[in-house]
C-alpha cells in the first residue's frame, strides 16, 4: 500500500509537468482550433532565452518576466507573419506549417546554444517537500504555479471582456465579427497567451529534465495526450488530465510486468484511447453537437 501511495505521489509530481504543457495546448486549441505541434519548441526557445538572460546577470524573476513578455510578443509575431496568411489554407497545410516551424526553431536553438545539456536554476529550491522524499519543493512549487495559472485563466475567460471576446471568436467567428469583435486579433492574442504559458511551462520543467533543444519532445506528447484526455475544450480538464497522465504512467511502470521505461508511453496512450472510446469528448470536454 505504501508503494502504491508513493507511486501516486510521484505520478502527481511528474503530472505537474504535463499539466503545465497541456494548459498551453488547450489555450492554443481554444484560439485556433488546431493542435500546435511547435508549441513545445516555442517553450524550449523561450526557456533558452531566459537562461541566456540569467547568464548575462539578470536575476531569476527579472529574466522570468522579460521572457514572458518576449514570448507573448513572439507568439503574436509568429501568428501575424506565418499563420495569418495560411488561415484560408486547408487544415492539413496548417499542420505541415507547424511541423516546419518545429524544425526551424529546433535547429536554430541547436545552432545558437548547441546540444549540450545545461543546468537550469529553480526558484523553489530542491529540498524534500514536507519531509517527503518523493516530492521536492520545486515540484510542489510547480503544482502551485500550475494551479494559480489555471485559476487566473478561469477568471480571465469568465469575468473579463477580452476573455469573453476570445471565447466568442473561437466559438462562432462569424457572429463574433458581427457584434464588433476583431476576431483576427483575438487569434493573435491566443497565440501570444499560449506562447507565454508555454514559456512558464518550459521554465518550470527545465530544472527537472535539464535544458537542451530536444527537451520538450517527450513532454509535448504527454501534454497533448493529457489535453485530449481531459477534453480539449476545458483548461481544467487539461490540468486534471496532466495529473492523471503522470499517475497512469507511474502505476503502469510499477505494476504491469515487463513494462520498461520505453513501453510506458504506448500503454498510457492506449489507456487514453480506451477512455476516449467511452467518452469521445474527453473527461471534462463539452461534446460539440453539429447541426446538419
Amino acid at each position: 500500500m505504501e508503494l502504491f501511495t508513493n507511486q501516486i505521489l510521484a505520478g502527481i509530481a511528474t503530472g505537474a509537468i504535463y499539466a503545465c504543457m497541456a494548459l498551453a495546448v488547450v489555450m492554443i486549441y481554444q484560439a485556433i482550433d488546431h493542435l500546435n505541434f511547435a508549441q513545445g519548441e516555442m517553450a524550449m526557445f523561450a526557456t533558452f532565452i531566459s537562461w541566456q538572460l540569467m547568464q548575462w546577470g539578470v536575476p531569476y524573476w527579472g529574466a522570468f518576466v522579460i521572457t514572458l513578455v518576449l514570448s507573448f510578443l513572439g507568439g503574436i509575431a509568429i501568428e501575424r507573419i506565418l499563420f495569418k496568411p495560411l488561415a484560408k489554407a486547408p487544415i492539413l497545410t496548417n499542420v505541415a506549417g507547424f511541423i516546419a516551424l518545429f524544425a526551424i526553431i529546433n535547429s536554430c536553438a541547436g545552432l545558437i546554444w548547441d546540444f549540450t545539456i545545461k543546468q537550469y536554476p529553480t526558484p523553489f529550491g530542491s529540498a524534500p517537500f514536507l519531509g517527503s522524499q518523493l516530492i521536492s519543493t520545486h515540484q510542489a512549487g510547480m503544482i502551485g504555479v500550475t494551479l494559480l495559472l489555471l485559476i487566473g485563466l478561469f477568471f480571465f475567460f469568465q469575468y473579463t471582456r477580452i476573455g469573453l471576446a476570445m471565447r466568442a471568436a473561437a466559438a462562432l467567428p462569424e457572429s463574433a465579427r458581427l457584434v464588433g469583435i476583431n476576431t483576427s486579433w483575438m487569434i493573435a492574442l491566443g497565440w501570444g497567451m499560449a506562447s507565454a504559458i508555454g514559456a512558464i511551462a518550459g521554465m518550470l520543467i527545465a530544472p527537472v529534465v535539464f535544458l537542451e533543444p530536444n527537451m520538450m519532445g517527450g513532454v509535448l506528447i504527454y501534454g497533448f495526450a493529457a489535453a485530449v484526455l481531459g477534453g480539449l475544450t476545458s483548461p481544467f480538464g487539461a490540468v486534471i488530465g496532466g495529473f492523471l497522465m503522470g499517475i497512469f504512467e507511474n502505476l503502469a511502470g510499477t505494476y504491469i510486468p515487463g513494462v520498461g521505461n520505453e513501453l510506458k508511453l504506448p500503454i498510457a496512450l492506449a489507456l487514453i484511447i480506451s477512455v476516449l472510446v467511452v467518452k469521445p469528448a474527453g473527461l471534462f470536454g463539452r461534446h460539440i453537437v453539429k447541426r446538419v
Binding site: I99, A100, A103, N106, C108, G110
Partner: peptide, 15 residues
C-alpha cells in the same frame, strides 16, 4: 548546422 531550419523554410515556401 542549420539543415533543420533550411528544411523548415523550404517547407514554408512550398505551403
Amino acid at each position: 548546422g542549420l539543415s533543420g531550419a533550411v528544411f523548415g523554410v523550404l517547407l514554408f515556401l512550398v505551403i
